[in-house]
């Protein structure tokens, strides 16, 4: 039903596959196989093409994601100020690798190639909230704000 509504919303657009998948992901937090199948069926696009788009773009997740999304920026400016060490530290603290989710489904760790906030790097974003000038010793206190 949800997916129906989303498709309806984009009815007037010429090619709306990407916006539809974006909206579904906002709604469900990931793109479950059933949703992908349903979209293919309703838009009359071959399943393989829908899957091709869903798997190509980085913003789409084909795995369930946690309640909190932690995004660590790996852009150039963040890199030269130690961005990779921040990823490693978050990874260690949560015991997951990038693109993985903790067993309790609380946190998903993602990396991004640049958030365009280069002046304040290294940058970490949790659920849309930006943290600048992050050091590995600050990681723990930032994450703990989101622990239940």
């Amino acid at each position: 039903m949800q997916i129906d509504n989303i498709i309806q919303k984009h009815k007037t657009q010429k090619e709306a596959l990407i916006p539809i998948l974006q909206d579904i992901q906002v709604e469900l937090n990931w793109l479950p196989p059933e949703a992908i199948k349903e979209v293919a069926q309703k838009l009359a696009i071959p399943l393989i093409d829908v899957y091709g788009v869903a798997s190509f773009y980085r913003a789409f997740s084909l795995k369930p994601r946690g309640k909190h999304i932690i995004t660590v920026c790996l852009g150039t400016a963040c890199h030269v100020r130690g961005g990779a060490r921040i990823v490693a530290e978050v990874s260690r603290k949560l015991n997951i690798e990038p693109d993985e989710t903790t067993e309790d489904m609380q946190f998903t760790l993602e990396t991004v190639n640049c958030l365009g906030c280069c002046a304040i790097g290294p940058v970490v974003v949790i659920d849309g909230e930006y943290y600048g000038g992050v050091t590995s010793s600050k990681v723990n206190s930032i994450i703990s704000k989101y622990r239940k």
């Binding site: 852009g75 890199h79 190639n113 906030c117 280069c118």
Partner: peptide, 12 residues
């Protein structure tokens, strides 16, 4: 689509 890492002109 300002994809270059280290760039934020277009966003700004």
């Amino acid at each position: 689509d300002e994809g270059d890492p280290g760039a934020f002109m277009d966003r700004s």
